[in-house]
Design a protein around this nucleic acid. Structure first.
Lengths: 358, 358
DNA sequence: CTGAAAGCGCTTACAG
DNA sequence: CTGAAAGCGCTTACAG
């Protein structure tokens, strides 16, 4: 509305300087450090910038300041798959809280053409939060090369890299022991697909939870190879849970309890069970992992293992911001606690009136 | 592992050029256009880059290419509040699908120090998807200044800006008429807080849904000012829904039906109703808006208005990418349909055995 | 097949 | 209080 004719292609600091009859330095100061200039000059420059419709180029600015003011979240899966699990939005709430407090922006960095390795050098960010990195195929080296700080969440981090994990093993152990203490013998385990589709290469998270299940079984003199124990592996989604139920339920002797490595799959199991007319927990007990908000609101409320998801995001972002401000900050490894939350989806199996005591 | 001593602070193209005895041009070509160089030179340069642990600077690259390969999603609320509604992750799945297909990254751009206006010039992105922009307080002008393409979703866009909206009015109208056709007379409406907390300035979305409710009421000779119609305004979250139920239920003549402007609040209402021992739909009918995945899985399944959330994200991203590639692309305004989905949370009110016919 | 040079749009000592 | 100049690390015509 204040422009006379169509504004030129792109207004730069030089044009303003020329128009205002001052140096580029002055123009820069007018916006970034007005105290360096006389009020009259500042007003003059700003008026011209306004008239020309000037908008500073953030890239050029970053070029000299060496800052983008963006935090990167490096993802092992594409954005659509990542967002399919409510875990992630919750995690981002934690990260986002720190972004808001520090005036930073949040960049989601999925694999580029299927490769995390390729994505790392391209992202214009000041640092990375690396989530769920499984077996390292050079990603850590690539991140070091980039010479930006990074923190690893739910992964197997080298000693010198800040990291956050939760006590997956302990939580999984408690979940399995809970089921066994109720007297269940025929148990289905719902494991999760590793994103690179190689069964042997478990995520540290998956490996830890599996180890916890094994420990819990061992406490009751059982092993995971017991014929009464069946394990299926599905994608970390509601659909994966539905599939898990279907596969477990059609066996000749279906489980009386299903132990799932994540709430989203447990919820899928619950949904499928109800659709099949299976009563939970009377005919089937279900226990999850994560404690998503929807777990407590399910019908019946889902017994699960709580982990501080949002807190992980916040902590990761705080550690990253600290590393950004202070190159020399000590890399610390956090191990956050998990807690079994017994709700309505687990109970004594129908065929056994009395729970087995520990 | 291939470096001899600690690598220097930051490896640049110049250092490699010097070390390799070639020009910077050659180094650039070795990575971006190897066909310009003899294979021997390429290998030589790459080997040195490898030894030095070179990682190209994405900012410097963007500086000359004028591309960041990042799509920005401009948010009216901070990231934590945005992620509190499952609507958003779903929307991002759509956007993310396009990012994956085009090799772009996704940047979440919340208000900077409380101001969208301030956030716009700083984000290092090639274009914006602007979601839920309410009354324009200069944001559109600021976006134009930036001279990057942008598309508006769920907002009131100028003619020359590409835009996507859904038929909120029609959907809301259908929802209200459904309730009235069942015979309900005492109705609670759950409206949503506008993010700038000025009741008069409705989001176009909120305004359109409200208009739809009014139209539906009018079809039955009713108005929103009818003493039997109560409206409460809460935040777009599950907690907001709980609050809405509490406020509506404590009135001397509580509603027999609650019509909510979003599923997340409707689910909160449902949760609170169940917690109070109120049977749905026998004692209280509930209808939502959005058709989140959890709506169908609620107990009872939520009657709601479907809108194509993921599709909106995909379409918005596609339009933005098109505008990025072709400056001259025609700005089109999409209006996507909505559809009432009658499920288990609505029914005939207890005090009336026969529904009123239309 | 290779190199010298200009340029992208800013910021920031440094000098006056 | 103000300006000339260097520099951030790349890419890209252009010339040879």
């Amino acid at each position: 509305m204040s422009t006379k004719r169509t504004v030129p292609r792109k207004v730069t600091i030089s044009q303003i300087a020329k128009e205002a009859g001052v140096s580029k330095t002055a123009v820069s100061f007018a916006f970034n450090d007005p105290s360096q200039l006389s009020p009259a000059t500042v007003n003059h420059i700003r008026a011209i910038a306004e008239r020309l419709g000037y908008s500073p180029d953030p890239i050029a600015r970053s070029m000299t300041t060496r800052r983008t003011n963006a935090l990167g979240v490096l993802l092992p899966l594409d954005i659509a798959a990542t967002m399919a699990n409510p875990f992630f939005p919750l995690f981002l709430r934690g990260v986002g809280a720190v972004c808001g407090a520090t005036g930073m922006t949040l960049m989601l960095v999925p694999p580029l053409w299927g490769s995390m390795l390729k994505a790392i050098p391209h992202a214009t960010v000041d640092g990375f939060i690396v989530v769920g990195l499984e077996i390292d195929r050079g990603e850590v080296q690539q991140l070091r090369r980039r010479r930006v700080p990074f923190v690893m969440v739910d992964g197997n981090a080298p000693e010198d890299i800040p990291a956050i994990n939760v006590d997956d093993r302990q939580g999984a152990r408690a979940a399995m022991m809970h089921i066994l203490s109720l007297g269940h013998r025929r148990i289905g385990i719902v494991s999760l697909e590793s994103w690179h589709h190689r069964y042997e290469d478990f995520t540290s998270t998956i490996a830890a939870r599996l180890a916890g299940y094994r420990e819990g079984l061992a406490e009751y003199g059982r092993t995971i190879d017991d014929p009464d124990i069946q394990m299926v592996t599905v994608s970390t989604s509601r659909a994966g849970g539905v599939e898990a139920f279907t596969r477990l339920w059609r066996s000749e002797s279906p489980p009386t309890a299903i132990v799932a490595m994540s709430d989203i799959t447990a919820l899928g199991v619950l949904e499928a069970a109800k659709a099949h007319g299976v009563r939970v927990p009377d005919q089937l007990s279900i226990v999850g992992f994560d404690d998503l908000p929807e777990a407590a609101n399910a019908a019946p409320p889902l017994t699960t293992v709580h982990q501080p998801i949002e807190e992980k995001g916040r902590l990761a972002a705080e550690m990253l911001v600290a590393a950004l401000d202070d190159e020399e900050s000590e890399p610390v490894h956090h191990l956050l606690p998990t807690e079994l939350l017994v709700r309505g989806s687990t109970g004594v199996p129908v065929w056994s009136a009395q729970p087995v005591s520990t």
